[in-house]
Nucleic acid binder design. Structure first.
Lengths: 199, 199, 199, 199
DNA sequence: GATGAATGAGCTTTCATTCAT
DNA sequence: TATGAATGAAAGCTCATTCAT
């Protein structure tokens, strides 16, 4: 154990940091190798090719994010609280490392590395969200006529949207904090059953 | 007239098709030229450089989309109907050309071609949405505590999300039609003022 | 007459101005054509190719310079005065249009357009200088043991040298005026027979 | 050691030979790589870009020339002898490699690679000459009213001139040996104080 | 396993020249 | 003759991948 996986991990971490600093297309094998403190050729002892490295990184990152999210929601009761906690987890990662958005949100698209591979870890993350939606529906907290697979993409996409918004407009005209609040409100009443007043 | 713009248009259409087939980063000048049936150098008679070509394509596409959307909503009264009409217009384009999502929805990020340029046509499209939101708020149809700039990104992102969903999962497990319905419901109650019961 | 040569002349003048503004390598056929107010293809009705244009321009410019120099020295007696007048003529042209130096002084070298062609007009200009040297030698003003062909190159090269100096060092540390004076003094005593004092 | 610098040297020597054969502007990276027996990309393992290669070559060549000249003059006393020794050194190099003139004497002009960089090695070489001139002036051997910065360019340019002459005219009508003698004579009396007769 | 120099296909861009009109 | 859009070879440069050590 250890040694082999240590170097593999070192390379992946270097790749993550290079992407975080230089962006997806600025992440060359040479920069990754240098930061990892290994020779360029060494990368190919641990990964088939660059694509394999990036996909592995992607999988690992989403897997860990999902794990952290699962831990956090395990203490929570209400589906709204769970969704909010997950959302915070995701936002935290990408606020710290804006460039990761490129790889972990944006490179999820037709034609990208990740698309053909239908990367499992992202689907698992989406499954987590879907589970909460279904749970909320069972508890009659969330509207039962919402398609869960569609709903999870609406939530995921809306979150991406406000991150994009933060870049598209400046920090001056776009408050991420206010945007989070707005998103929360929209989703809350968008998802929740309307309370039958007077009953 | 015509001839000059014809060739320009031919090149732009070729670029669009190459992007559609090969993705944004697979769209080389050589492939574009070949598909357009012109020499590579000819591209540079009509565009300053590749970036100029891509941005022109981007601008043109969003501009036309915005125009069509404006025409469609001019007959409509209720903000919900307007948003739905716009949404249909966008979905129509990207269902036909899935790869365009890369360029027209996604390449809007720090470091990308479009980010520095803050391409005006996309902002105009978003302005259209924002206008409808503000209008709905004035009419006390939409919640007044929603930040319009955030809201427009939530809508935009949610729409992207369900398009992504359609690709991430197969057609068999993801019904775009059902997804649209779900999105509509979420946004409807998400955006609209809750009716004061007892009145 | 006229029309044919007019257009030819127009193109050459445009070429001269483009070189003067943009330098030798910035002088593209497209810029020349635009400034001349003709189509790019038209250049090829008057010149075999770009090389032919440039060489023609070179020849013409040196021919005219030689003519002007001949006119000026026709009134002068002493070889020193003649050389100085020629020198002033050359310096005047290149001080006004520094970029011309590239073509008319510097592109005279092995491997250049002009080298293989052994451009006649420059040789005529050098012949003019040589004639003055020979004349000075006949009159026992100049040293008779100087090889005239070598001497003409020494003069020509020395003049180039101080022009280079003006570029190599800044205007602040290199006074072209002082340099001319120095060159004059060196050549004067360098060329002239030493007067046998006391005899 | 060695191996790394060997390849660097191989590439520089190839560049030198390509320039010698094809001239400065005919020296493409592809030709250089082919002659060096390396892939084009290999050049960029040793030099930042083509400009860096050419400037390195230039610097190296002038530096070595200056070194050799310094060694040779260290044994000499009279400024005339020193200048002559330097001159011989320069002539030796360029007689062997005529095309180098382009790069090492002539590409020193506004707009050229070397101009902006004010390549230090050439200035050092010129400083060497200037030092001898100043020394000669201190010793009252050379005229004190000559501007040393101008004088060094006159000498430099005159030497260039006779090299040019050797190419412009054929070997049959231009004797480089005679030209050297002529240059020596002109400079000798041109630079030296006139002896005060009667003393 | 680890190295990193070497590779070379492929990229965007330029521009002298051609030729159908 | 005049046009100028079209051409395409060739340029400098990048970088994922290989392989001899």
């Amino acid at each position: 154990m250890g040694n082999l996986n240590d170097k593999r991990r070192t390379i992946m971490e270097a790749a993550l940091r290079v992407i975080a600093n230089k962006g997806f297309h600025g992440a060359t094998t040479s920069k990754i190798a240098k930061l990892a403190g290994v020779a360029e050729g060494t990368i190919y002892n641990y990964f088939e090719n660059k694509e394999d490295l990036i996909i592995s990184l992607f999988e690992e990152t989403w897997r860990k994010l999902t794990e952290r999210a699962e831990t956090r929601i395990s203490n929570l009761e209400h589906p709204n609280d769970k969704l909010e906690a997950i959302f915070d987890e995701v936002m935290g990662l990408f606020e710290k490392n804006p460039h990761l958005i490129e790889v972990f949100l944006i490179e999820i698209k037709p034609g990208s590395l990740f698309y053909e591979k239908k990367v499992q870890s992202l689907l698992s993350f989406l499954d987590l969200i879907e589970g909460i939606i279904r749970e909320g529906q069972s508890l009659r907290i969330y509207k039962r006529d919402l398609d869960p697979k569609a709903t999870r993409m609406v939530i995921f996409g809306a979150a991406q949207g406000i991150i994009h918004g933060a870049f598209l407009e400046g920090a001056e005209s776009f408050s991420l904090k206010a945007a989070k609040e707005t998103l929360k409100r929209i989703l809350k009443s968008g998802l929740m059953e309307e309370i039958q007043s007077g009953l």
